Simulated assay, not measured.
Amino acid sequence: MISNNELVSIVVPIYNAEIYLSKCLKSIASQTYEHLEVILINDGSTDGSGDIARSFCETDTRFKLITQVNSGVAAAREKGLRLVQGKFVIHADSDDLMAEKAIEYLYKSIVDNESDIAIGAYTKQCNIGEEFVTHHTCDKHDFIHNILTGKYHSGLWNKLIRTELCRDISFNESINYMEDKLFLSKVLKKDDIKISIINENVYYYRLVTSSYTNNISSDSISSSIEVTNKVCNIFQDIYSNEFIAHIKNKNKLMVLLNSQRTQRGIFPESNKYLLEDKNIALRHKIIIVSDLLHISYPIKFYKLLSSIKFKSSI
């Protein structure tokens, strides 16, 4: 039985976010659902983020500040998760905003549907405009499918989760890119989880786009490969070899288009499924095959054309 006034925990990892942090925390403090605890993890910031976070704690007892040496976003999320006391937990990123009724909407969805996870719509903001993003399935299997293919975002900021589902799951502290996707996959793999969907806006996801290509760090590339491998292992007993190969080949393509790294030795088992994959465009198959054959010109040409097209749209 869920009461109408259960404590909800919000975890906010913070690292050098002084430009955005005050607005982020104001959006949390202004929630219409007031029974909150807000755990701020200052991950070794060297700017004024710590002072901003501390000022919120001094004026609002729901806010709690924990400071640690810089250890990465996964370690910050893990630290916060181990401290939460709420019946439900959600994460917020320090450069984003929560919609005023976010927790009210998500909590009501869980109560009304007796669900374990409530997922809300969100507004994606970038320097060329806004996009309102909704979801269209409550079936867990379909939802996982859409997360794996990238149709749905795996961020934890629009998902209110029953805390007990997270107690035996941890963030891998060596993974600081797509760490949320790996964590969410572990939660979704659990049996008898019920998902509810709402199409009210709960979050403003800020995405500052600086370049179409070559804007992902080497560590992030490595993390994406590791997460893809781990996530595929989690769901390999649910999905076909062809679908798992599709996910791996999509990751290869992402790496090839956003770095200078070859993928010839990565996920070799997925190569035999590439040409028959109807969900990967021919031009993208050419990119992957070119890499396998040690031919770099098609990749460079494609990236050049993509960069020109991106610049012309700004």
Results as ranks from 00 to 15, higher is better:
1 M>R: 11
5 N>C: 10
8 V>N: 03
9 S>Q: 04
10 I>M: 12
17 A>H: 13
18 E>L: 14
19 I>K: 15
20 Y>H: 11
24 C>A: 11
26 K>H: 14
27 S>D: 07
30 S>N: 15
31 Q>F: 00
34 E>D: 10
38 V>C: 08
39 I>Y: 12
48 G>I: 09
54 R>T: 13
54 R>E: 11
56 F>Q: 09
58 E>C: 08
60 D>S: 10
63 F>H: 06
64 K>P: 01
66 I>L: 15
66 I>K: 15
68 Q>K: 14
73 V>Y: 15
75 A>D: 14
79 K>G: 09
87 K>N: 04
88 F>L: 03
90 I>P: 02
92 A>H: 12
93 D>E: 14
95 D>N: 13
98 M>P: 01
103 I>K: 08
104 E>S: 14
112 D>N: 09
113 N>F: 11
119 I>G: 01
120 G>E: 09
122 Y>G: 06
125 Q>G: 05
137 T>E: 09
148 L>C: 06
150 G>K: 04
151 K>T: 14
153 H>P: 07
154 S>M: 06
154 S>R: 02
155 G>Y: 12
155 G>Q: 15
164 E>H: 06
165 L>T: 02
166 C>M: 10
170 S>Q: 13
171 F>E: 05
172 N>H: 04
174 S>Y: 07
175 I>W: 03
176 N>F: 05
181 K>V: 05
185 S>D: 00
185 S>W: 02
186 K>I: 00
190 K>G: 12
193 I>A: 02
197 I>R: 06
200 E>G: 03
202 V>L: 04
209 T>V: 14
216 I>W: 14
219 D>C: 14
219 D>S: 15
220 S>C: 13
226 E>Q: 14
230 K>C: 10
233 N>L: 08
236 Q>Y: 12
237 D>A: 09
239 Y>D: 05
240 S>P: 03
241 N>Y: 05
241 N>E: 15
243 F>R: 06
243 F>G: 08
244 I>Y: 02
244 I>M: 10
244 I>C: 00
247 I>K: 04
248 K>I: 10
251 N>E: 13
256 L>A: 04
258 N>Q: 05
261 R>I: 14
265 G>R: 11
268 P>M: 01
273 Y>W: 08
274 L>T: 02
284 H>Q: 04
284 H>F: 11
285 K>I: 04
286 I>A: 05
288 I>L: 01
288 I>K: 04
288 I>Q: 00
289 V>D: 04
290 S>E: 02
297 Y>Q: 12
298 P>V: 03
300 K>E: 13
307 S>Y: 12
308 I>S: 07
311 K>E: 14
